[in-house]
Amino acid sequence: MATSKSVTVIGGGSFGTAIAYLLAAKQEKVKIWLRDEAIVNSINTQHENPRYAPGVILPSSIIATSNLEYAIADSSLIFVSIPSKSFRKVATDIGKYVKGDQILITTTKGFEQDTFKSMTELLAEETPCLKIGALSGPNFAFEILSGMPVGSVIASRFNEVIEKVQEALGGKTIRIYGNEDVCGVELAGALKNIYAICAGIIQAGGFGENAKSLMIARALSEMSRFAFYFKANPSTFLGLAGVGDLIATCNSELSRNFRIGRKIVEGLSLEEAITSIGQVAEGVYTLKAVKEKADNLGIEMPIVNATYKIVYENQTIPMVLEELMAIPHKKDIEFKFTCPD
């Protein structure tokens, strides 16, 4: 890989801005690409992203641009932080300017709606790059930008990718753990958004902490069951990208997906809830994609089904809850991990 002069973040939403903020602690130059010229100007002159990180002063080493070719030139490490809905389009554009030896990291937690492909798969399909990874974990942008301690997982089949990301991002406030199970980490990151919506519904519906814990624990089983079908490692779900992210997102108002759930209980329609959040809540799209996939493959996912009925079919919460509680009793632990002799 050529000696790099900068690192790049594609996407200037709240998480893209947070990643650029973290990178700036160690890198001489961080380029951030976004379409909105007003925000580009604000970052370059006022050092602030007024829409997605208002009030946070960004380091002057962060340079914003709306020119993708310039953003990618000279960068050996590129983070892609784009909503799943427009991810493929942007990945195709990235493919025009990368040469194949750059490292590409997705931070997006979701699937492509029509194909159910993960973001790393889209990067592999649309660009000539092979060294690809996914960053995941309990990472609220607001807390990162406030300088609070945080942990993330970088998943890649290439050790080099894991090491480079650890080197570029790891610092006083962030610990980066490596994992080779890219599929497991991406599935965990995407699936937990569904359960965050469900947690928002439970919280706002006043069903109590016991119910929420029950949902979280069973969600973990459900996620592992789903991931097992895709040959992911179930033990990945016991790490930061799985249980770590699930705990954070199911318990915090900072989670957009959690807020979607709450707003639905408050009587807003799905469209109204999305509009009131003002940012993309990936869980809404993931819920639909996972429901279809699980039905298609015959994978039992009662919490996904219940959440789908409330969010997309306008069924009442008491009715759905009654159905959920009537499911035959099961074993607590579904997966057995073999202990070495």
């Binding site: 890989m1 050529a2 000696t3 195709t92 040469k99 030896d101 399909e125």
Partner: peptide, 18 residues
Amino acid sequence: IDSHSRPIDIEKYILVDG
């Protein structure tokens, strides 16, 4: 070539420190 028929310089894949 990549999926959009753009040429790829595959020697770049095997560089270690350039």
